[in-house]
Design a protein around this nucleic acid. Structure first.
Lengths: 191, 191
DNA sequence: TTATTTTTATTGAACGCTCAATTAATAAAA
DNA sequence: TTTTATTAATTGAGCGTTCAATAAAAATAA
């Protein structure tokens, strides 16, 4: 039962945070969405905080695996960069409510050490994924710079899309802009 | 007394949200920081929500005026673009805690109509400020594209700096990157 | 098999706490 | 004195957590 319930509760948490915000999300709003009692949360996660953290870890690993599913050994560096961008914009398409949840958690990470740790893992991973791909296309310094800039561009486009409550098409548009930008970095610095 | 107390309470709110987050901020944490009693908040702002919204409006107009203070009629388009970037990164220097507060508010804006309205005002203003300056340096379509991209770049660099709990130097570094990027857009599309 | 015990899974009411808001009291100013 | 500004105490709603009770499932014994 345990794995079933855990997933049930994590998905209910994503929905609740997307709908009501982290502030408005209570143990009741979650358990109601999951169709379970409120007591079960403490039973499986030790408390509300434990469930929140488990939910962030769940989102993080979703992102990780959606990238890993695409990339193989024969994937070209440029193609790999495109996959990284797609993965970062993809969660939207899978679950339209995930992006709002994501931003809520990042805002909270400023005041919660464990969330901040997880946020750092995510931020560094985006950077190093980008950097290692760029590295195959240009010198080390340029690759670092390109990774820093494109990480910011991806996050910025994503942030503006989320905050303006964009629809799927606008997210697609942002994704295209990010891809174009990465291509322009390659032709600018590329060997 | 009223204007004095209002400013006192707004500044205490900024501090409290920066320190404790929007979740952790209570009328007690605010009034304590302001050295006043909790009842005074309802008296001057009608309640906590009113104070929160007044604080966002305060931050918004700070940003607006810090830009207006720099720009004159004789400011060149390129210089004006640099001032826009400086203004967006500048709140950090004035008050080191302001940036965290901003992000907290923007996250909350997804679930609060009035905050969302204010967030939109801000986002649109950044875009149109950029666009009108770019327009003097390139054709209309390029200017729109350049404004969209540089708005995202500014927000992305800013977001990553805030979330990684950067110090002032790292913020300065991000500001420099944003400026360089805008310059590269000018030389790329510029007439 | 059937009956009995034990374990596991789940509930929801009760508890203590914290919050925002209100209120009556008080102090200061006009 | 009347008005304005402020406090401090109080209220009631809502929160997360706990926990005794229960139901369902599994294991054991007859």
């Amino acid at each position: 039962m345990e794995p079933v319930r855990r997933e049930q509760l994590i998905k209910a948490t994503i929905e609740s945070v997307a709908e009501l915000g982290l502030q408005g999300t209570t143990i009741n709003s979650i358990s109601k969405k999951a169709g379970l009692s409120s007591g079960i949360i403490s039973h499986y996660f030790g408390g509300k905080q434990g469930l929140i953290e488990a939910t962030v870890r769940y989102l993080l690993s979703s992102l990780k695996y959606s990238l890993m599913a695409q990339v193989t050994e024969s994937t070209s560096p440029e193609q790999r960069l495109m996959y990284i961008i797609e993965a970062n914009f993809a969660l939207v398409q899978q679950r339209k409510d995930t992006t709002r949840t994501w931003l809520s958690f990042w805002a909270q990470s400023m005041h919660d050490p464990e969330l901040h740790r997880l946020q750092n893992v995510n931020s560094k991973r985006l950077y190093s994924n980008l950097a290692s791909s760029f590295r195959q296309l240009m010198n080390a310094d340029s690759a670092k710079r390109a990774a820093e800039l494109s990480a910011a561009m991806i996050d910025g486009l994503w942030l503006r899309a989320v905050l303006s409550q964009s629809d799927k098409d606008q997210f697609k548009h942002s994704e295209q802009l990010a891809k174009q930008y990465v291509r322009s970095l390659i032709s600018q610095y590329g060997a």
